[in-house]
Amino acid sequence: MRNNRAVLTHGLVWLVLLAVLFLLNVREHPDRAAIMVLLYGALNIVIFYVHYFLINPLLIGAGRYWRAATYMAIVLVVSIAVKYGIALYYDDIILQYRDNDNQQQTLTPMRYSVAVLITGLFFMLLSTAVYVISSNFKTREDRKNLETEKLNAELAFLRSQINPHFLFNSLNNIYSLAYQKSDKTPEAILKLSAIMRYMLYESNEEYVLLEEEINYLENYIELQKLRFKEKVYVDLHVNIDEKGHRIMPLLLISFLENAFKHGVSTDPDKPIRIDISVQSGRLHFNAENAKNQVNKDQTKGVGLTNLRRRLQLGYPDRHTINVVESEHYYSSELFIYL
């Protein structure tokens, strides 16, 4: 695609330059305008691309200056010979001119050769300038692509860390239910199955629908509730201005994990509160809960560290994250411009 675009750009530029050259000559010299455009234009274009593809890589890329200078001399000598041959064939059109006294004059071979030499050097210099600019653009684009690939690889690695981390916690929970011979065990396995299906298949995309991510969070909450004999209170409020918003997958789960890790609530007056809203393209996620020292999970995971790095990679300068923790209270808040 990039090569096709470059060829099209070069073709259009040459077409415009040849058209301008024709228009500049057609009024004063209608008999030689076509010759200037077709013959001399084509020869100068050949000089440009011979220098572009053959000499510039030696001159700039490989540093083989003597070889490059030899090729330049050969190209200039050949171009002078060819152009002078054309001039001799069209002697009355190209070599003949009128001086200030309107007297017919003939260009000497030396004067004509110097003029052709200067023209050839101009197109070689132009070729080098275009080559340097194109090389810089290509280098910048390749570097950008490399950085993008690196970021994608790092994001994939960070995402892969979430799955075993979550799976480890969930299997522990189901093991506890099974050990207690709880009737909740089959339901917990079904919830985990739905969650894993989302994690394995849906979350492979770079972005997913926000509705799917919220459904995943709801399944996670239900799975967590099955762990406890007592009723667990979680208030989830969702307010989205319109459908179709997309978000990086598995981004919000770390907040829920930390909310449950710092203590589930069996007090209806102090539930875990989760608010998710989207207004004018800005996502606001807030999770807060009072700490429960009895049920508090003492394990430490990679959740928030992983989350911060994913946000830096996926939403640079487009997010704000705040975590407040005290002896009796835990709150996490996230703003993202989707």
Rank of each mutant, 00 (worst) to 15 (best):
K184F: 03
G61L: 10
M124F: 01
V7A: 15
R98A: 07
N258C: 04
D267E: 07
N204R: 12
H29N: 08
L226C: 08
V264M: 07
A42L: 14
M36A: 10
L117V: 00
L256M: 13
W66H: 12
L125C: 11
L177Q: 04
T108Q: 03
L21Y: 06
H328N: 13
L17W: 11
G314N: 10
Q298F: 04
A33D: 07
L313E: 08
V16P: 01
D101H: 14
S182C: 10
G244T: 03
L12W: 03
S193D: 08
Y71P: 00
G63D: 13
R143Y: 00
M196L: 15
L125V: 14
L88V: 03
K225A: 09
G314V: 05
M199N: 04
L39Q: 05
F48P: 02
I247R: 01
N306F: 03
Y112F: 14
Q298A: 05
I247H: 02
P249W: 07
Y131P: 05
N4I: 12
N145I: 10
S113Y: 02
S332Q: 08
E187K: 14
D92S: 09
S203N: 06
K225Q: 14
I276Q: 07
N215K: 10
F168T: 10
N136Q: 14
V77N: 01
P164D: 11
F122L: 15
R159K: 15
Y49F: 15
A19V: 11
N286K: 14
P164T: 12
A194D: 15
Y337P: 00
Q161P: 01
H29Q: 10
L21N: 07
V77T: 13
F168M: 12
M110F: 12
F157C: 03
I247Q: 05
L167W: 07
L252W: 02
E218C: 02
Y220W: 09
H319P: 02
F285T: 05
V234A: 03
L23S: 00
I93R: 11
T119D: 04
D183K: 12
G41N: 08
I80W: 00
V50W: 05
V20D: 00
S326F: 08
G41H: 09
H262G: 01
G281P: 06
V116Q: 11
Y112H: 09
L38N: 10
G244N: 04
M110A: 08
V264R: 03
V114T: 01
I133W: 13
A259V: 10
F53K: 09
A42Q: 10
L167D: 04
Y220G: 01
N44V: 00
S254C: 06
F53T: 07
F22K: 03
Y198K: 04
M36Q: 13
E222L: 12
G303P: 01
S254A: 14
R64C: 09
K150E: 13
S277E: 12
A115E: 03
S280D: 15
F228R: 02
F255E: 04
Y84W: 06
W14R: 05
D99P: 03
I247W: 02
K184G: 01
I321W: 05
I321R: 06
S160M: 07
A153H: 08
